[in-house]
Design a protein around this nucleic acid. Structure first.
Lengths: 120, 120
DNA sequence: GACATTGCTATGTCTGTCGTAGTAACTATA
DNA sequence: TATAGTTACTACGACAGACATAGCAATGTC
């Protein structure tokens, strides 16, 4: 297991995208590359997952779409920027994450992990 | 937000149950109480979630059902114990958790969290 | 005897992820 | 300039885990 099963990440893809949009507006392909690089290939977001996150978050008002092209018919990419609501949502998720960590770690045993690694 | 949205926990309910079964065989109602208490009410597992986890994990061979009653027709509770496969699965999930934490934390900003708490 | 708690089953819905497929523009290369 | 590879998306359907709702029977408590 070198990659993460995405079911675990579920609920945090939005957060990952919003984190990156806090820095700069961006678009699908670039974001997916950034996520892959930032996580050192440990998490590679699927295209469909990414784009469905866009439409969900746009619907929820967390991001806004825009285009750099003057001519709408010519635009290649759809850029997104984070909204104020998106920033609030992001912060909420960060707080939730600390709670989640606390909860899950009650049920995790770190002992023997190294040992296990060796005996594999 | 004092409780955790269960979508975040998704993928770790099995782990929580297995952790407790490592100590003792147990049954639904008791496990749900233990989870509630261990997490100081931060996570309260839904009944349906719990019991569907049982059947899923039994199907996967991670747990085994048994009864303390001699007379099967009289049994009140279904007890479960963890199997060897379950122990391995549990350890795998613990390793996965460390990875997950690493990945997610790249996208979390802890700064301003306290500040936010104050202004609420 | 009434009421709360315990312990579980059945059924269906919702949502996020993902597989598969397809399209079109742009880029590099030979 | 033909071709292959990369970029940048959209559409559609399947699946699985969490959960709402409902129901039911045994046990405990006052």
């Amino acid at each position: 297991m070198t990659q993460i099963s995405s079911d675990v990440i579920r609920g945090y893809t939005d957060t990952m995208i919003l984190f990156l949009l806090l820095e700069n507006p961006s678009y699908g392909y670039e974001l997916s590359k950034q996520i892959r690089e930032l996580t050192l290939e440990k998490y590679i977001i699927k295209e469909t997952t990414l784009y469905s996150a866009f439409s969900r978050m746009q619907k929820n008002g967390y991001i806004e779409a825009f285009s750099y092209e003057a001519d709408e018919s010519r635009k290649r990419r759809t850029y997104y920027r984070i909204t104020e609501a998106g920033k609030n949502y992001y912060q909420e998720k960060c707080r939730e994450w600390t709670l989640t960590k606390e909860v899950v770690e009650h049920f995790i045993k770190y002992s023997d992990l190294a040992e296990q690694e060796d005996t594999r």
